[in-house]
Design a protein around this nucleic acid. Structure first.
Lengths: 214, 214, 214, 214
DNA sequence: CATGAATGAGCGTTCATTCAT
DNA sequence: AATGAATGAACGCTCATTCAT
């Protein structure tokens, strides 16, 4: 009887330790992301990160094998977030839910603003990151959007536009609307403002600028 | 008679030297921009730049006082290019010339693709560069676009949209259309393709996605 | 009971570390002073200093923030030594104790020979060092000497000489007597020799060269 | 007849050229000495020197083979000046001419103030310079002074002091009196002031500080 | 597990000197 | 003879990483 109990306790112990480790990893990741976002990966020193988490510089190496690995973990988590967007995209139908959906996506993107900012920065100067992380993970989303447009073009709801081009424009409008927040020069919108923004985006995408009575 | 001739020759000599210096500066600037675009400013070493121009590392310092100054000159030249766009923006009227204008701007932006890529990269992590270079020089362009939209909204040609929002969306669509080229993962379009792209962009901006018979 | 003990141990640990750091700083300072004295500050490289202490070049920067700071610390310590001379100068009276005092000052100056040599070298070509370190810290000593001379002139013990001039000459004679040792071309005197020297100096200052029966 | 004339002209030409070269060498030497005096030899760049003479940096190498050679020439000229002092020292007799002589030596030393300052600076950190230049050239002067003192001690005019010690003290008093001028923190004295100074120095050396009625 | 101390590799920059003109 | 241009060697300093405790 004892051994199981010991095992159980050991397991609880192990879990507690495991959780503490995960908590610390998360703290390091968040601090590093903040710094990478502000100064860029190369200009952020391991000393900077350690000071931000208030641990010794060499303690970092108990949680990550290198500074590079910290970045990779940030990229991984952001990629997971992008992947999760697809779940929401799978019920694109009426215009109403389209606005709600847009709102939801904006929310997700803004919640991960700092991680996104890091990814954008690094993908801009590293081909490998652009190809392995950004393009790979956004590809399914692009496909879903293309399919969405294609369906509506076939149904005569949308003009006969190239779906790939349309999808890219959609994402552009989408991202551009929150760029200053991602960049860190504007505060995140309130939920209400964000919802208005979502509505405006959808209208812009669907109707463009021309007056409807034209 | 002799002094003038001597002067003349001296002047010619001086000009030749001056031209050689300018040519070399340009070569360094281009090589540096290419490297900054690919690896970022901090990760590019002065040794990299020197090797790319095939000169000694210390020779760089005969043309620029520091690595930092090389970057600043790149930013300055890009800013001058942005300023020059305004000239073209001053005759925005019919839709036809709007497409031509868009084509022209795309052309300018693509011609300076590498410099633009550097500016985007650095502005993304340096507030000072974002504020002093990017925002300062794009501001007049934004103003011109807002005015353009405002006029058309007043005339009932455009929907009653917020001009600021509209202008930002215009630029977003504009930039997004050439982002892969700026980023260096797609080759620049041929003039014909570029013109088609310009037409598609204008249609997207003006008409959105909705079918006209809707 | 345990916490106090732990604190105590921690404190002991901290003290041990602190002492080790101070010991290392002192070793670096001494090695640097030796090199600065031999080759001058600018001609001494950080590599030279590191090699003399048998540590890596970058290890220096764990103890001092810059090569400049090493020099400043040397200047500071020498200045503190000069300041401490004043304590001894405050009982200048009989001729006997004047010799003993001179002996004491020579001893102090020679003990810090290398540091003094560095200060002289640097003050010779840096106005800021001359004014901020040398003149500032020797000023009180000069004042004390002037006062000493002034009193004796008033009492008819000394000839009616300008106290400022006299004080400067006293220091000149004083320094000159140990210049070869400071310069490093003669070994330091034994205590006995030094005491004889002190007596000769005092006699020189007080009696000059003229025969007393003159 | 022609060849001689040609020779003569050539010679005149050669002389003119020679003189021009010597004039330029002197200009370089003076400018370099000024800079070496202010910032030290190592901290003075060849660019500094060239700018001070208003010639190209590489032009220096038409007159001197290296920066080191410029310093050596400065040392040589200063050494020649020191040698020339000996001429004056050869009629040391009455006390009156002793003051005049001191005045003369001060004059010579001050005229070459900048060169002296350079020599002192370099001899302070370079054993070779101290031994080969300073000590070698001051040795005969020291000998002459020792002889001077020895004679007077034998004649009962001076106290029975060690001639070597006395000679060194004489030079110390001598140099110390003009140290601030050599160092460049005081302006050179007028001839009248200088003569007073000479008298005071001689009195200090001969009579010390003690009142004569003592 | 946490960390202070140490360090090799590499950075941007300077400078005495050479060389083609 | 004069010089602008070029450069190798060396400098002071930083930083990601290792290691003994």
């Amino acid at each position: 009887m004892k051994p199981p109990i010991i095992d159980h306790m050991a397991s609880r112990e192990t879990n507690r330790r495991e959780r503490r480790i995960q908590r610390q990893r998360k703290a390091i990741l968040d601090a590093a992301a903040e710094l990478f976002a502000q100064k860029g990966y190369v200009s952020t020193t391991t000393k900077d990160i350690a000071r931000a988490v208030d641990i010794g510089e060499s303690t970092l190496y108990g949680y990550f094998t290198s500074k590079q690995e910290i970045l990779q973990e940030i990229l991984n988590q952001q990629a997971a977030m992008v992947d999760s967007l697809l779940v929401h995209l799978n019920d694109l139908h009426g215009i109403e839910s389209f606005v709600d959906l847009t709102d939801l996506l904006l929310d997700r993107l803004l919640e991960w603003a700092i991680y996104n900012r890091v990814v954008i920065a690094e993908a801009w100067t590293h081909d490998e990151i652009l190809l392995s992380y950004v393009i790979v993970h956004w590809q399914p989303i692009m496909e879903r959007l293309k399919q969405f447009i294609h369906t509506r073009v076939a149904a005569g709801i949308f003009r006969p536009i190239d779906p790939g081009f349309g999808a890219r424009m959609m994402i552009a409008i989408f991202i551009a609307s929150i760029l200053p927040v991602l960049r860190g020069v504007e505060p995140p919108p309130t939920p209400a403002t964000r919802h208005e923004l979502a509505a405006a985006l959808v209208e812009m995408i669907v109707n463009g600028l021309r007056a409807q009575n034209g």
